[in-house]
């Protein structure tokens, strides 16, 4: 059976949920082989085996953190040349898509981004134009390189050997041209990751300021949800940019999305309108967000949201 290479997303060896999803998907397409790059990767191997990685190709080194994108492409390109996999799956994050694009150039292959499903004949399902159109596409040249959106497949464990092979790949001269001199982490910890969460609670300009996000966070915590924000809120500096949902932020498709004080501009919708269930709280009855909402309340979010949080906590007992 042909191998399916899966590029692993991890933080210091702790494997992200999206990688478990990709391995689960890869099992339906061929023999999953995980590609693990970075430092502190040892702890990841067992978790990859648990989700079905038959092989784990490991490239250890600081280069992957010290230079932008290209060193990972060097490793993947070498593995594609050596193993001729049937496909390469990469998480559809901003960086993941760049890796996929460069790998496509390097291996003279086609690339498909933002897939929500891949079938056994390597046809990808993509949801385009903000979810209004569903497209089926296929790569017709080279090795299909497909980026898959987080939350597209339910991760299911299925232990395999997870045989580790260390690979050493010489970096191209051009791969070390963009040098990372400093890494700044501005995380609001403790909550599920935005693109992976089953429930997302978002706040927009209507929350009025950074302190206004308090009621949004309290509701999120009552539901075990991630917090999102509109561009108006991130531009104003009320919430960090990486929590922005929409065209130029994250695309999310949770089971439940609760928009608070968000008008529903087209660029915001582009990142959330494929959510299963949408709830909106807005004091303006004309706000376009209500066109999308399965349930909407016209009212002041500072009245409605705390009441909802209290009610959820009460019912949880």
């Amino acid at each position: 059976m042909a191998q399916i290479l899966v590029l692993v997303e991890h933080v210091d060896g702790s494997v992200k949920k999206v990688t478990h999803e990709l391995l689960t998907l890869a099992r339906t397409l061929g023999e999953p082989a995980a590609v693990l790059v970075g430092t502190d990767i040892d702890a990841a191997v067992a978790s990859l085996a648990e989700y079905g990685a038959v092989n784990v190709y490991a490239a250890v080194g600081a280069d992957f953190d010290n230079y932008v994108v290209a060193p990972t492409v060097d490793v993947l390109a070498a593995l594609v040349a050596e193993h001729a996999p049937a496909a390469v799956l990469i998480a559809s994050t901003a960086t993941g898509k760049e890796i996929a694009g460069r790998l496509a150039v390097r291996t003279d292959s086609g690339v498909l981004t933002d897939a929500v499903d891949v079938t056994v004949d390597l046809t990808a399902t993509q949801s385009v134009f903000g979810g209004a159109t569903v497209v089926h596409s296929r790569v017709s040249h080279g090795t299909p390189i497909i980026t898959v959106r987080p939350n597209s497949t339910a991760p299911v464990a299925s232990p395999a050997a997870g045989t580790r092979t260390d690979v050493v790949v010489a970096l191209r001269e051009s791969s070390t041209k963009a040098h990372v001199t400093n890494r700044v982490v501005a995380q609001k910890g403790g909550r599920p990751e935005l693109t992976e969460a089953a429930i997302v609670v978002s706040g927009g300009r209507g929350v009025g300021g950074p302190e206004g996000f308090g009621v949004v966070e309290e509701l999120a915590d009552a539901l075990g949800a991630a917090v999102g924000a509109s561009r108006a809120a991130t531009d104003a500096g009320w919430y960090p940019h990486q929590y922005q949902v929409g065209q130029t932020g994250k695309t999310v498709a949770p089971q439940l999305y609760i928009a608070n004080g968000i008008s529903g501009a087209i660029q915001h919708r582009a990142g959330m309108q494929t959510s299963k269930t949408i709830i909106a709280v807005n004091k303006d009855a004309e706000a376009p967000i209500f066109e999308l909402a399965d349930y909407g309340v016209i009212g002041d979010l500072f009245e409605v949201v705390p009441q909802l949080t209290a009610e959820i906590n009460k019912r949880k007992g």
Binding site: A104, D108, S109, G110, V111, L112, T123, S127, G131, A132, T133, V134, V135, H136, S137, R138, V139, S140, H141, G142, P144, Q273, I278, V281, A285, F290, E291, L292, A293, D294, Y295, G296, V297, I298, G299, D300, E303, V304, Q307, L308
Partner: peptide
């Protein structure tokens, strides 16, 4: 290097319920 095989338009979301907050929102 890739081709769209086919596409379909997703039906628009069905209209939901919108209520005014009368103190019980």
């Amino acid at each position: 290097w890739s081709q769209v095989a086919d596409f379909s338009e997703r039906p628009p979301r069905a209209a939901g319920t919108v209520v005014k907050d009368e103190g019980e929102g």
